[in-house]
């Protein structure tokens, strides 16, 4: 399967998706197609390698979740993006589809406060369990004091 074939297939199956670029194929999706597209990518397109999952804080426009998966045999890389909308911080979880999403989504929750529905074990991973605030949001200052340590 080539990239062009993959792009046409995506366009057929997921009409509302927006496909740009060649490598990686950047697919911008609405949130409700998130998990079904991930399953499609894994089963049909053969993208079984889960590279990473992260989020971006676009201030007034809200949060965006970005996932990259790859087909190691045919070198098709998909960058899946979805905008959660202003003020919304919940997103369906890809952990049932890709096991690598488990820790990556825990990190997104830790850093951005995005609650992933369907995640088996959503708790903070990098910061302590009783930490207040989600640091990578643009509203969080980088040098927030934390007495007595800083």
């Amino acid at each position: 399967m080539t990239r062009e074939q993959a792009a046409t297939l995506i366009g057929e199956r997921f009409g509302m998706a927006q496909v740009d670029g060649t490598s990686p194929l950047v697919v911008t999706l609405p949130v409700d197609q998130w998990v079904s597209f991930a399953r499609f990518a894994k089963d049909t397109l053969g993208c079984r390698f889960f590279a990473f999952s992260t989020a971006v804080d676009w201030k007034e426009q809200g949060l965006e979740v970005v996932v990259r998966v790859e087909n190691l045999d045919t070198q098709i890389a998909l960058l899946m993006k979805t905008r959660l909308g202003a003020g919304i911080s919940s997103c369906p979880s890809l952990a049932p589809v890709y096991r690598g999403a488990n820790w990556m989504e825990r990190e997104c929750y830790d850093m951005f406060g995005i609650r992933f529905d369907g995640h088996p074990d959503l708790r903070r991973i990098l910061l302590a369990d009783d930490w207040e605030g989600h640091p990578l949001l643009k509203s969080y200052a980088v040098d927030t004091p934390h007495p007595p340590y800083r």
Partner: peptide
């Protein structure tokens, strides 16, 4: 193999 690719 399958676990390796799935976890990334």
């Amino acid at each position: 193999r399958e676990l390796a690719q799935d976890v990334g």
